[in-house]
Computed example of a mutant assay.
Amino acid sequence: MPRKLKLEGLQAELSAVELLLKQAIEVGDPIGEMQLTHRKQKIENEISQTDQHPEMTASVALFFWWRTSLRF
């Protein structure tokens, strides 16, 4: 997977986990808070590892973006 896509995916996942963590703290869910804190740390570690290790192989990502128009 291209580095940029991997980083964007991890950053999106981190944002979602941070939101869920905030909600868990607000409702007083200690188990959820503990699990989400652990997951947040894992994601942050993955992001830092991805930043530290440059890709050694070339990769290409093709994006096809079109609007389908099916009419019956």
Rank of each mutant, 00 (worst) to 15 (best):
M1G: 12
P2H: 06
P2Q: 02
P2R: 04
R3D: 00
K4G: 06
K4F: 14
K4Y: 15
K4A: 08
K6G: 06
K6D: 10
L7Q: 03
E8M: 03
E8V: 05
E8D: 01
G9C: 00
L10C: 00
L10T: 02
Q11D: 07
Q11Y: 08
A12M: 07
S15H: 09
S15D: 11
S15Q: 14
A16S: 09
V17S: 01
V17H: 01
E18D: 05
L19W: 13
L19I: 15
L20K: 04
K22W: 15
K22N: 08
K22T: 05
K22L: 08
Q23P: 06
A24G: 01
E26Y: 10
E26G: 04
E26S: 07
V27G: 00
V27K: 07
D29R: 04
D29P: 05
P30L: 03
P30H: 06
P30A: 03
I31V: 12
I31Q: 14
G32W: 14
G32F: 11
E33C: 06
E33W: 02
E33S: 03
Q35V: 12
Q35N: 10
Q35W: 09
L36F: 04
L36D: 01
L36A: 02
H38T: 14
H38D: 15
K40Q: 05
K40F: 07
K40P: 04
Q41I: 13
Q41G: 09
Q41P: 10
Q41S: 12
Q41V: 14
K42A: 13
I43S: 01
N45M: 13
N45W: 11
E46F: 06
E46H: 11
E46A: 08
E46K: 10
I47L: 06
I47H: 01
S48C: 10
S48R: 15
S48N: 13
Q49C: 11
Q49D: 06
Q49M: 11
Q49W: 03
T50S: 07
D51A: 10
D51G: 10
D51E: 12
Q52G: 06
Q52S: 07
Q52L: 09
H53K: 13
H53F: 13
E55A: 08
E55V: 03
E55G: 03
E55C: 03
E55F: 08
M56L: 11
T57S: 13
T57A: 11
T57L: 14
A58T: 04
S59P: 09
S59Q: 09
V60P: 00
V60D: 01
A61G: 07
L62C: 05
L62E: 05
F63Q: 13
F63C: 13
F64E: 11
F64A: 11
W65K: 15
S69K: 10
S69F: 15
L70S: 15
L70H: 12
L70I: 08
F72S: 15
F72D: 12
F72H: 13
F72P: 15
